[in-house]
Nucleic acid binder design. Sequence first.
RNA 1: GCCACCGUAACUCAGUUGGUAGAGUAGCUGAUUUGUAAUCAGCCUGUCGGGGGUUCAAAUCCCUCCGGUGGCUCCA
Length: 576
Amino acid sequence: MEKNEDNLQALRHSASHIMAQAVKELYPDVKLAIGPAIADGFYYDFDKKEPFTPEDLEKISQKMKEIVKQNLKFEHYEKPRDEAIKYFQEKGEKYKVELINDLPDANMSFYKQGDFVDLCKGPHVGFSGSLKHYKLLSIAGAYWRGDEKRESLQRIYGTIFFTKEELDKHLALLEEAKARDHRKLGKELDLFSVHEETGPGLIFWHPKGALIRKIIEDFWKDEHLKNDYQLLNSPHIGLLDLWKTSGHWNFYRENMYSPMDVDGQDYMIKPMNCPFHIMVYKTHLHSYRELPIRYAELGTVYRYERSGVLHGLMRVRGFTQDDAHIFCRLDQLEAEIVSVIKFVLFVLQTFGFKEYEVYVSTRPEKYAGELEHWEKATDALKKALEQVGLAYQIDPGEGVFYGPKIDIKIKDCLNRSWQCSTIQVDFNLPEAFKVEYVNEESKTVQPVMIHRALMGSLERFFGVLIEHYKGAFPVWISPVQAKILNITDSQEEYARKVLAELKNIGIRAELDARNEKLGLKIREAQLQKIPYMLVIGDKEKENGTVALRRRNSQEQKIMALAEFISLAQEEIKNKL
RNA sequence: GCCACCGUAACUCAGUUGGUAGAGUAGCUGAUUUGUAAUCAGCCUGUCGGGGGUUCAAAUCCCUCCGGUGGCUCCA
């Protein structure tokens, strides 16, 4: 059999059936839900009273082995729907009956291997004998049809490949992902923490993390000023009425915290920055000549997230968006979106992210504003993407309540994607807040608003950055760029001079002057993933040199201090 | 929020069928002045996540709350 992608899907789908067969043989009372192939494996959902244990997984895996050995044929056949319903009703498979009831076809497609029969449109591999290189990975809860009001099922995840090598490679990838986990590295590199005492989903940036954040923020602000944005700062709370006007109270309440009483008035902690930027805009009457007006802010927002979804820096309850709101004329919309897309790509590429997945999300069921506006805005987003030459997919119904959006997911070095950047068109807020400008004919007109975030949130972006680089940040971002390691006390004075000189020209350097052996100092600097280690012994002291060792090689290079400085400056300038 | 699992020293983890806790690292003290990934010795460290219960006795069993993990759902 050929080993192309489609066949891999068939292989995985078949593995899911074999797993279901094994489960049915071991636990006959289990009811079957669904079991598809997914991106890197397969799963099957079961309705079983007692929870599956890790030991069960082992048993199921063994049973699967037996089934594979029997080399059963996957047989395809069809049954008329009433017969199919009757068949599953008799077997007590209520989920299958429900599935059939929702299918339009007159005949139902079945697959059978050995005594195991499943409703399934296929395709499958020919024989169970091909299912050799699999592994069951985890047990998880899942709702029937993804609906939390319905039955809670147990899902078993697994993965399978055609060859042992591919399976091993995939398992190694999972290990590698564990080693890169930003929560683990965040602790090891002392970057951030969360505390039970302060509440989940609230991030504490430690000195090294906060320093990285400052570097990111400085870069961000400088680039925004270069790109004709103006920087704002707005408060963290505001009157509830504002959020009623904006529509958030109607459409976004489940993500907002409860109001707090201040002098008898209800205040909200902000989940978004947009209404505040509108306040600034509205302090003046604006001419069409001024547009587009671009307000940018690193705005910290708080949103209620269900406890089960919180995850390190990736999903939190308080975060800082690298937000901006652009007020422009309708005829400027497309060009403005184009320049935002270009800006996004520039920023992402600077941080080393070169691959993306782009989505255009269209109108959701709960929405504000007029249909005609939605269409215009969606159209502008698509056209802008086409103009920049970015391929995109449509995400139907996934837009925000006030307008359609472009989401750019970045792919990290393990090919995992993370949603960070977002560009959203909004006709609703200008209407709600009566945002205006004066046109050529001296008439007041409503501008269009674009909400956009390039990195999304500093927290998530930081998390992705940590995992992408495995904590070994490029020199320009590294909190400590150079560690000076003297061998004995007698070079300490020279080492201090080196330190002062590096600091003086803006290189972030530290001196490890402890009375320890060089091996230990190297080891610790290495574990902290510091890009430059500068060893200083008697020879270096006498000659005014440093012995450079980089974190990514064992090789040492002796050079004049001035030479190291220009080398480092060059790499920092080029954001390597 | 829901399902499952987990929560022992600052960190990583041991702790047999219930008999009130241990190892490495870190920290502190001292010795050592060391040339590219761990020098040696000594010392210190805990309401075993919180509360309640069962028991003569609970880190271990039960209940409950909090927090974490993997998913579901949702999202920057």
